[in-house]
């Protein structure tokens, strides 16, 4: 079984569009959306939830005001500026990281640690195979843990189904949720665009791939918006021994397929759809091999 994660560093380069297309083109796979704080893949794949579960992770501190003596020791100890004294200790749950230091040292035992219900995860059926996805509640933490959970679930499902592939939609950036999406991954497809920001952010993703010793491949989306920059990106990849699988031209059909909520390559032989078909064929040959 092989696992491919689609990343970009910079947002909005076409990760989810690409993954939606791969979902349509690949056979015998499980899909996972690991952009848990702004998950969008479900908007293309019309999933029917088969399982819906609470995601609980970590704790949040809460003050029992009948016990609090307003001594202020918790405010002093908190490294996250989550506690303010206002007649009694008040906790800002968005800042609380759930370390529990305040509760441990409260002389009145006035701080309770509640298990944190921070999101929902789903196993769904789509026309293109099973999808594991999740939604972290607005402003919550633990996105890395939820990503790790979604990935575990997807792998388990793939093993049960005898699937050959796991296709993962990653988050933008190179931080916590992205790092969590890289465990057990065989390859990264880095989707970029021919802009200075696109190149800058791509290089950070490729550095991350090197850091974790994962092979990466590149697709240059909307390449014709700036052909010289697309050339520059290719040159940069060559220098790094990273294979550029292809270039996808700018095509208004990408937006219309999103408006219609269908994968781009479904019933579409436009220029972007054709380019993505070719890139997918190459990626499959490179990763899944013979």
């Amino acid at each position: 079984m092989k696992e491919i994660v689609v990343l970009s560093g910079k947002g909005g380069t076409g990760k989810t569009t690409f993954l939606g297309a791969m979902a349509f083109l690949a056979t015998n796979k499980v899909l996972a959306d690991c952009d848990v704080d702004a998950a969008d893949l479900h908007l293309l794949l019309a999933p029917e939830p088969r399982q819906e579960n609470e995601f609980r992770s970590g704790v949040k501190a809460r003050v029992d005001s009948t016990l609090c003596s307003a001594c202020g020791s918790c405010e002093e100890l908190c490294q996250f500026d989550a506690i303010e004294m206002n007649g009694e200790a008040q906790i800002n749950s968005l800042s609380c990281e759930g370390c529990g230091v305040c509760a441990h040292f409260c002389p009145e035992n006035a701080i309770i640690l509640d298990e944190n219900h921070c999101g929902t995860w789903f196993v769904s059926d789509t026309d293109y195979g099973p999808l594991v996805h999740a939604q972290l509640f607005a402003g919550e933490e633990n996105s890395g843990k939820l990503v790790a959970f979604v990935k575990r679930k997807a792998r388990q499902l793939a093993e049960e189904n005898g699937a050959e592939l796991i296709l993962v939609d990653g988050a933008p950036g190179i931080g916590c949720p992205v790092i969590a999406s890289l465990s057990n991954t065989d390859a990264i497809l880095a989707v970029t665009e021919p802009t200075q920001s696109g190149l800058h952010d791509l290089e950070r993703v490729l550095d991350l791939a090197v850091h974790f010793k994962i092979q990466s491949f590149v697709s240059i989306n909307k390449w014709d918006l700036n052909p010289p920059m697309a050339d520059e990106i290719e040159a940069c990849c060559r220098k790094r021994d990273v294979i550029v699988l292809g270039r996808v031209p700018f095509d208004p059909a990408v937006v219309s397929s999103q408006l219609n909520g269908v994968p781009l390559v479904k019933d579409n032989d436009g220029i972007a759809a054709m380019a993505i078909r070719e890139i997918w064929a190459q990626l499959r040959d490179n990763v899944a091999g013979d």
């Binding site: 702004a38 908007l43 972290l136 933490e141 933008p172 950036g173 999103q258």
Partner: peptide, 24 residues
Amino acid sequence: GTSCPFVETVSDADYVLLVTEPTP
């Protein structure tokens, strides 16, 4: 995103401009 880095960044803003595009 909308998780902790976003929250930390906007937390003491006087006004937030949200840039979006007219798509799903």
